[in-house]
């Protein structure tokens, strides 16, 4: 049985695509057959983060319109087994996404025995974002430790509760999980950022993980490598923890306090 997980946030620039790439790569590394779909039609980015932009031939919209088949369209990741990417179209807009079209593609993927289908949502609450979350079984809500991001996440949670397929059919609700990204414990200590506890209190959903602010995130994005593959970095380890929790493992939260700058920082602090 396939699980459809939407990675969403409402607000832009908080790390949805970075998270989608890392969660998908992490699940695949754990042996799960995984596909990650870019729903950001017209502003395609996932292929860059995944480092497969030069191999894009057909895209999500072609697939919806029946102009290509799954085999032609899916791009197989070269680093991780079990991982496929379904890129967005760059020349179309979000109106190309219809409920029927998206459902058809998801059904094809299920028939192909994908265990995890990760939907990378565009920012906003319009057509693209709604289509990305409509068929979701689970949601990873990506939030930065600042009030406007929390407010937007709250808004998207409301839409998950009222506008998803599960809500419309009165089925058990979409499982909601919180992922806090760009967390800087030092700035939390000085009151410049909201703390994890504040965010959990405001949003009232279970915490999947906290990804610390790290230079490595930008570096690996530029190189087209999912951060989760950077085993030495704190962000990579935090994503690995989040994936493990997604698979049911219990792991304590790490990187919540500011570390002392010293020998270890110099040694490991990439």
């Amino acid at each position: 049985m396939s699980k459809i997980i939407v990675v969403t946030s409402g607000k832009g620039g908080v790390g949805k695509t970075t998270t989608s790439a890392s969660i998908a790569a992490g699940l695949a590394r754990a042996g799960k057959k995984t596909v990650v779909i870019d729903f950001d039609v017209g502003l395609r980015n996932l292929d860059l983060i995944m480092g497969c932009e030069r191999r894009v031939v057909y895209d999500f919209v072609n697939l919806i319109n029946g102009e290509s088949n799954l085999k032609q369209t899916l791009i197989r990741d070269k680093r991780v087994d079990n991982l496929w990417i379904l890129p967005a179209s760059q020349t179309r807009d979000k109106d190309a996404l219809t409920k029927e079209g998206v459902e058809k593609v998801l059904k094809d993927l299920m028939r192909d025995k994908f265990e995890y289908i990760i939907c990378d949502s565009p920012a906003g609450i319009e057509q693209g974002a709604r289509m990305a979350l409509y068929y979701a079984d689970e949601a990873i809500v990506v939030t930065n430790p600042e009030v406007s991001s929390v407010r937007d996440s709250d808004r998207i949670l409301g839409i998950l509760q009222s506008k998803s397929r599960r809500a419309e059919l009165n089925q058990s609700p979409v499982t909601e999980r919180l992922l806090v990204t760009r967390y800087d414990p030092e700035r939390v200590d000085t009151g410049q950022m909201l703390s994890v506890n504040d965010i959990v209190e405001l949003l009232a959903i279970p915490l999947l993980g906290v990804i610390p602010e790290s230079k490595v995130v930008l570096e690996s994005s530029n190189q087209g490598r999912p951060v989760v593959l950077e085993n030495e970095s704190t962000a990579g380890q935090a994503y690995d923890d989040a994936v493990a929790r997604l698979l049911g493992e219990k792991r304590p939260m790490r990187f919540l306090t500011s570390e002392k700058k010293g020998f270890f920082k110099r040694l490991f602090g990439r």
Partner: peptide, 22 residues
């Protein structure tokens, strides 16, 4: 949640959870 509107017509409204700004 933010952006949600709940109306109890001709009666009381009882919320057993958080309500959000907005």
């Amino acid at each position: 949640r933010s952006g949600q509107q709940v109306y109890a017509q001709e009666g009381d409204l009882i919320i057993m959870a958080n309500t959000s700004a907005g």
